[in-house]
Design a binder for these strands. Structure first.
Lengths: 466, 466
DNA sequence: GGGTATTTGTCCGTATGTATG
DNA sequence: TCATACATACGGACAAATACC
């Protein structure tokens, strides 16, 4: 049994089952599938082609009725001997393949961004999308609320309360097209003159955004608990941007004590704010989820930012933030002049996705999926204890390896690259320069890779790094 | 292993496997089935429940994919540890009231914003949406180009060339979620110290945006051709925001001579830019469409902004701008740090909508629709020549009435309001104060009204204003 | 203790119902 | 009404693990 490389056109006028039928028929007629050979099961093929099993069934049935296939119940479909068949197929060129995307010579990319390909809940999304677009609600196409639709904000508030311990009401929530946009909006509310403290290292795109927006960014060193409060205090910053749940890229979880210290810092002087970026908190593989920093805040100093980029897909551009009461007035004066940046259709889709429990199911599924990949890497790393030590495990979709055998980051990346593997040096995530004594680090993201790719990648890394 | 007491409803609308799934999931979540516990075999359970084994299999498979169960081949299914799973329950957190929408007692609202209810091409949109969401392009859900997808930008460039005489290549185009967002992005590129000149009166939301962003806005008086070049020169502004095709709210079309004068102003000093807001250029009811100002620009001084808010729907949040070459470098340095603000799905939908000719057909349909409303108002206004004079006709989706019978705007609005009709005073669109000698003006928008509502509204206005 | 019957998850083809255009 | 596609439900065949003789 071989794999069938059928490229289907979903709306090319030709029915799906017909395309499958034609393909297999040609394969048999051309002798590429020989008599007696087993074909993929209807389930396997339907999964591979992302169509319903019934569609494959229809094709198989037609092939069977024409004598190309024989069906043995409970066993499979098998190609028949077609000697003596009349071939009435004069025309036709070959089906052309779409050109493959070049990957800069990398065969496996441990990218720290992105999601599992195929992880997007496409069928449910399509179903809800159709439902929303079939609705006769005329208001669906007029301009909506600048903060986002009320019911969506309620659904987000409810989710945040239960899943993240965030205390928020719909009034405080602002939805927007991606974290970058929300940072842009926030920058306006907080004023351009605000000095912003960031963890060192931190999420590179956030500091690029802040700098583009004209803010002064100061890097605060980390210890094993996260941003050092003493250095934050000394920095003179008014805003601190932190990722307490799973710091990027170091992967540490901020302990309660440190969280309280940061909250104390914010409270100490009026006008200070903590921006909590909870970018991938959905994915924890052991223990209970840690409630968000925002949940401990008693003095309206935390701005909580969350996103569906990691949990659903980066390309749908849906993020949200919870403004403390002290910033709401500021938002109403300045921010509400800017129309909402998410289509009302998408807002409605995600609202239903949240309210009807699809999100919960999806999260559980993705968590199981990513945990599998996570565990696979960890298992492989057990053979590499002399080469590196792992940090930031049991959460998120990336790991940090600290090199122990004297290799530099550049060396490690270069060796990997020569073997076709892309890994990421820690250096890239220090806004200014790295702090002393941090050691050499490599980031491995696993969201976009399949398990067999991970296994192959790890085998190669083991070899080239030894 | 305990016995499961599931009572299945065979025709309750909920599929059997779903009922089994829900039951077991709840048992695990409630701790009635503890981690590690063995579940009945699919055969045993199917016998007990009198359903097929595959039905139980389906439920088990789903539970496994979501991490509730673990399957050990040839041994059985076992419950997993679900500590840390998200449980979405009814909201027990803070509650808040949805803000009540006030009806304000108007029965007919000549709103200057919005589109025809029912004007959205819902069926085609749904069809394309379904097509896009059926596509198995895995890249569809990873983060895309910061400027927008290349093919969409090509499609927009092509449309702009043919329909608006805009000279642009895909490289220059930046798509974004609404004009407000694009202005925010532009503000960053142009620098916050830029003094911005606007027409007086002008589009109120644009000046609110600029002010929120910290720009100094100066109002330049208009004559019958539009913004006065001499006053613009004297203002010391570096940026001028204009609507040459159909000025809002005055409705004038800027003649070529004035356009060239503005371009000359921009050229005179380096760093000057014209922002051309072409918000409703799609709707012209007589004569040829006037090419955009951008098309006459020889010196890379015009930033062209267009939107699908008027032509398709405000709620879909799709706008675009054409950057002059001189700003592209600036965009790459600052702007490209911000991810695109439109879902890739929506980008694909609108790309197909443009490429396959749906947009052209839609525009023609809408133009005919709005022309009918437009003509109906004009016909009614012929009986009111003693009360008011009409401006800004034959384009867009609103008209300006200048009152001739001594009524003030407030009076006219009040009289209309008492009769349940909402009309809009010109005053609201002057950023600072109105210029002398402009007269009293009333805006009538007709996009959202049906023809019979317009007729009734006009009848009433005729009566109360006499 | 080694062969055998049974249990189990898994995979298979099949049939029918349902939604959409 | 009909074609297309997907959802739901059914029961048999198989191999691996296990229990039993």
């Amino acid at each position: 049994m071989k794999e069938l490389l059928i490229s289907l056109e979903h709306n090319g006028g030709i029915p799906l089952y017909e395309q499958i039928y034609q393909y297999i028929k040609t394969e048999i007629a051309d002798g590429k599938i020989i008599a007696g050979e087993k074909l993929p099961s209807s389930r396997a093929l339907s999964r591979q082609l992302s169509v319903s099993r019934s569609t494959v069934d229809l094709a198989y049935e037609q092939l069977e009725s024409e004598g190309y296939l024989e069906s043995r119940p409970c066993i499979g479909h098998f190609a028949c001997d077609i000697e003596g068949f009349v071939q009435v197929e004069p025309n036709k060129g070959k089906t052309s393949q779409a050109p493959k995307r070049r990957r800069e010579g990398y065969s496996i990319d441990f990218a720290v961004n992105g999601i599992d390909p195929g992880g997007f809940p496409q069928n449910i999304w399509r179903k809800i999308s159709r439902q929303v677009l079939s609705d006769e609600d005329a208001g669906m196409f007029q301009l909506g609320d600048s903060q986002g639709e009320w019911k969506l904000r309620e659904a987000i508030a409810s989710y945040l309360h239960h899943a993240r311990g965030v205390e928020a009401v719909a009034e405080q929530i602002v939805v927007g097209a991606g974290n970058d946009y929300l940072l842009m909006l926030l920058s306006m509310l907080l004023g351009k003159s605000s000095k912003i403290a960031m963890e060192n290292p931190s999420y590179d795109n956030a500091w690029r955004c802040f700098r583009s927006l004209g803010h002064e960014v100061v890097s605060i060193p980390l210890d094993e608990a996260g941003m050092k409060p003493s250095e934050l205090e000394e920095s003179g910053a008014r805003i601190a941007y932190v990722m307490p749940s799973h710091q990027f890229p170091m992967g540490m979880v901020m302990p309660l004590k440190r969280r309280l210290q940061l909250l104390a810092w914010a409270k100490r002087q009026s006008g200070r704010y903590l921006i909590e970026d909870d970018y991938d908190s959905e994915f924890r593989y052991i223990g209970k989820p840690i409630p968000a920093l925002q949940g401990y805040d008693q003095h309206e100093t935390v701005i909580y930012i969350g996103t569906f980029s990691k949990a659903i897909a980066p390309s749908i551009r849906i993020s949200y933030m919870v403004l403390p009461a002290t910033l709401l007035q500021q938002y109403r004066e300045l921010g509400s002049n800017f129309s909402v940046t998410i289509s009302k259709v998408d807002q409605k889709i995600i609202e239903i996705f949240l309210r009807e429990g699809y999100f919960e199911r999806h999260l559980n599924r993705m968590r199981a999926l990513y945990k599998g990949k996570h565990d696979l890497i960890l298992k492989n790393l057990k053979d590499m204890t002399s080469i590196c030590q792992v940090f930031g495990e049991n959460a998120g979709v990336h790991l940090l390896l600290k090199l122990k055998n004297g290799m530099t980051e550049e060396e490690a990346c270069r060796l990997a690259k020569e073997a076709g593997i892309k890994v990421y040096p820690l250096l890239a995530y220090f806004p200014d320069c790295r702090q002393a004594g941090d050691g050499e680090g490599i980031l491995l993201g696993y969201a976009t890779l399949k398990e067999d790719e991970i296994q192959r990648g790890m085998n190669i890394l083991k070899e080239v790094w030894s």
